[in-house]
Design a protein around this nucleic acid. Structure first.
Lengths: 342, 342
DNA sequence: TTTAGCACTCGATAGCTATGAGTGCTAACA
DNA sequence: TGTTAGCACTCATAGCTATCGAGTGCTAAA
């Protein structure tokens, strides 16, 4: 276990490095107001901290830099709660003050506000669709052969798909079909739709055999599409402001990853409850082993359905970011829950 | 006017520079198979071409690089039609072979294929909405106070918006309202909707005064949203593969521009018929004065409604890009027109 | 008109040195 | 026994110079 002084010094080093991006020397630390020891003492402690794996030295005659383990300890044990200033709070309030908003728009704005407040890249996962329940189905014919199928969920999400109509199907037939679907499938979770179709109403639907096939296809594709389209990014280029990412090759790997929404989704995994911090080497993907990712889940009626996250350098303002994410996640949860929990 | 030999040499220089990214020297050119002159002769011609403004010299002891004017001449007068290989053609065909596709998905795939074929950043503008006509309006209540309003256009595009319902409105009232709207507004171009609402049915609607206000708001916002959401990007990071963009600052400016869809939209302007090439300095925005943008418009029933484009370094494979863009624009036009022109 | 030849230019590269931030260790001090 | 002053040592970085060579422009000959 670390002594109090070691913790104090580690905290000072991480703090300093976060803001300077330069390896921190013993003298820098000893000059700080909250430290009452000479540089020699600090040097000894730093040496110990390095031996214990909390610090690293880029080269012999340079200062020290926190290791992944060092950041981890900092995040888990040393972090001080960050207080947001008036301005930041106003921005957050404004987001949740807008009442008439599309679910997708809220998510998009959230991402934007996140980057504005943190100056890092924001990643937001829109609410998980599998828990969404069917509210309404519509089929709007465009001409003799084509129509748009529209699915509305109880959360107000709208999915739509262009479909080819079977030959010779009439508008009254379609209307009857839509009525049947709405009657039988309202409030069914989307992921059960196919199953229910098969089990319960395929019989009645079989009069329009082809239509039935396409309906299944449509729903199928709707889900797949959803999986990757839940990812909202903002401020992807912010990483280039960081001095340790002045190298095009590093940046390129990161930005390419950000373009691949399916990979992001896979990396972030299912939204677990609460806050997750992934620091540097703890990340699986090579491209972001010099980055940290912090995510917070938001929930609908107590169940986590999506997440808000920040991607930045390992040398990130953890305290501030965590505070902002918690605020946003809470706000989103409250908003979602109050809207749809009745 | 340039002599035949000057054209030959300019062509050789541009060609060479496009592939090597290095200033081209006289010896390199004189060694080419299609050139039968010594390096000294080439030097004299190069000197002349520089005086005329077609070439530039990074410094005295370096080779020459085409100027914006040089590229312009190359594009306007020297370019040879590029033949696509079998593989490329297959990819293009596959795109248009997929029948059951959402309009937005086609556009997204188009962008992806563009980057795949060219290795540059693709920018695609989805079909202009102002020409779209209303096909169908739906209002789906979610609970007592909220509903989703859905607009379907004759091209199969679906816009939706969460709205607050006025207090105490009943579902039969909503149904009547929707029927009224569908009855009166079908086939009206979207941009006329507000006007028509005011002129023709505000009277009948006034029974539900509040609803009427929100309907207007909804449509209004629908348009605005559309304006920037028409932009689809793919392969934004490709620019980093170019040796002249190894500098984070240059790249940053470009990528930041790409994040601002409204700026892109403004820069690209209304889709004029046919092909547009903007080379280097010809671009208004500083961030892309070292880039070229090539766009081709696609049309619906003869009228241009959107465009496909490529953003790359000035040192771009113009011939190939132009061919690919023409293919795609044509394909999109055919697809759109055959789908919706009946 | 073309080309060989040659002096000249100038960016890029390699090698060298000086600088200084920072360390580890030792010995003196409280 | 913990702390600190002092000092030799390390090593990345900046700046300087010399060298190299790709490429030019000009002149004179073919």
């Amino acid at each position: 276990m670390l002594s109090d002084r070691q913790r104090l010094i580690l905290n000072a080093i991480v703090d300093n490095y976060i803001h300077s991006a330069e390896p921190v020397g013993s003298r820098t630390i000893s000059k700080r107001e909250d430290i009452g020891y000479s540089s020699a003492t600090i040097r000894n402690e730093m040496s110990d901290l390095e031996e214990l794996g909390y610090l690293e030295q880029p080269h012999t005659s340079a200062g020290r830099v926190p290791s992944t383990k060092g950041y981890r300890f900092y995040v888990d044990n040393l972090i001080q709660p960050h207080l947001l200033n008036e301005q930041d709070l106003v921005k957050l309030k404004q987001l949740f003050a807008e009442r008439i908003l599309h679910a997708e728009q809220v998510v998009e704005y959230t991402a934007q506000i996140l980057t504005q407040l943190t100056n890092y890249t924001a990643i937001v996962l829109g609410p998980e669709i599998f828990e969404h329940r069917l509210r309404n189905v519509q089929i709007v014919p465009l001409n003799e052969t084509q129509a748009v199928a529209i699915i509305v969920t109880h959360t107000g999400r709208v999915e739509n798909k262009l479909i080819d109509l079977p030959d010779g199907i009439g508008s009254s037939e379609i209307e009857r079909l839509v009525n049947l679907l709405n009657h039988r499938l309202t409030d069914v979770p989307l992921w059960q739709l196919r199953q229910r179709l098969y089990q319960e109403i395929s019989g009645e639907m079989r009069r329009h055999t082809e239509q039935y096939e396409e309906m299944l296809q449509l729903l199928d594709q709707s889900f797949q599409q959803e999986e990757t389209d839940r990812v909202y990014l903002s401020g992807a280029t912010k990483i280039m402001n960081q001095p340790e990412f002045r190298d095009v090759d590093k940046v390129k790997d990161i930005l390419e990853l950000l373009e691949q929404h399916d990979q992001l989704l896979h990396m972030l995994g299912m939204p677990a409850n609460g806050l997750t911090v992934r620091i540097g080497q703890e990340n699986q993907l090579d491209a972001i082993k010099q980055c940290s990712i912090i995510t917070a889940s938001y929930s609908l009626g107590g169940k986590p359905v999506g997440m808000v996250g920040i991607l930045g350098p390992t040398r990130m303002e953890y305290s501030r970011v965590i505070t902002v994410l918690n605020h946003l996640a809470e706000g989103l949860s409250r908003m979602l829950t109050s809207q749809f929990e009745k």
